[in-house]
Nucleic acid binder design. Structure first.
Lengths: 194, 194
DNA sequence: ATTTTATTTGAGCGATCGTTCAAATAAAAT
DNA sequence: ATTTTATTTGAACGATCGCTCAAATAAAAT
């Protein structure tokens, strides 16, 4: 054996996630990343391969954080639907002021990239699918508990939630009104299709 | 007087709109624009001032096209709500295959830009507001005709529509299923809050 | 202590970025 | 025909882009 890597890979990916989430793939330069994570080009390329390679790891990190946050909401709520509602409020309202960006990093990436980065688009789509699957699990649980009509398709309801999340997080950036956003989310669960 | 500009300003803005809409502000280079509109840097800068200046004109053009499309839908439908539904289907479904980009250029811009381009963000927000105002007018018309419960806030319903549009256009890019998108839009108008 | 080797450094590569401007051009005015 | 002047051209500016790699470094193995 020989010299061992001294940088904290998780910490580096966390910082890179914040930067990419805030500025997007194209507007984040390797120089920006070098400064933020305090690594020189050679080390970054040795560890992550390329700008795309590092971005890929931040997409994974962002998605894992979201899924973990959803599970945390589930632990804190006896009702799966209340857990889902709490998650939506955290994602739509709380992120507007505290997170690197109020909008969903995955939606932002889908919006930003073109065929020129098809591999990144495919990964992003897959991650959105993973999150939708977590929604499905929660909704099916709610159906078992009788909180949601079990003749409805859990997959369709999950899609509905994801569409609301993406739409609301962008709207929240345009009109950051916590009370209004709160009402809108309450209404989503008080009416069709829930 | 002297030599007169020979380029077609509207045609140039149309082409620039398509490019910016497709690739976004940062990923569209002036070189890309020069090639697409067949003008040399000096002419572009004389006519539009800067990359931001030209982008601003394309935002205006994009918004005008959307509002015109909405009015066209109104002319083709005796019912204002049917007109709104037709508009949504055109924006969500038809654009996925024919337009430069399936997602809304204004939403894409809100998602992409940061404080570093606050002026462009402010313009984009204002344009989203203009479109919402057109939705309000249509909904108020529907309320007069008894198509929509007139105890509801037309402004809130318009916001609801805009959130659905943004969410659906991004979802359409992830899962381009015409039949499913069509059903989702039908459901929006068959249930709460309509 | 010396050797081995994974890691880190940072100068610098060629390409491209947004932009400028002096010179060339061409249509209107004389 | 000549002058005037708005427009167009395109070379080129300094800055920055993503990325490479030879040299320096430092921790583990001997």
């Amino acid at each position: 054996m020989a010299k061992v890597a001294k940088f904290d890979r998780e910490a580096v990916i966390d910082i890179a996630t914040k930067l990419y989430w805030k500025k997007g793939f194209h507007a984040t330069s390797m120089r920006n990343l070098q400064d933020a994570i305090d690594m020189r080009p050679g080390s970054i390329y040795a560890a992550f391969g390329s700008k795309e390679g590092l971005f890929t790891e931040t997409l994974r990190n962002y998605t894992d954080m979201g899924i973990e946050q959803l599970k945390q909401c589930r632990r804190e709520n006896s009702s799966p639907i209340e857990a889902l509602k709490a998650f939506m409020k955290a994602q739509v309202i709380d992120t507007q002021n505290s997170a690197p960006n109020g909008v969903c990093m995955l939606a932002k990436t889908i919006n930003e990239l073109t065929n020129e980065n098809q591999a990144l688009i495919d990964i992003t789509k897959a991650h959105l699918g993973e999150i939708a699957t977590e929604f499905v699990k929660l909704i099916e649980e709610a159906q078992v508990l009788g909180e949601v009509d079990n003749t409805k398709s859990a997959q369709e309801l999950a899609t509905h939630i994801q569409i609301q999340l993406v739409g609301l997080r962008t709207y929240g950036k345009v009109n950051n009104d916590k009370a209004q956003l709160n009402n809108i989310i309450d209404n989503i669960f008080n009416h069709y299709p829930f």
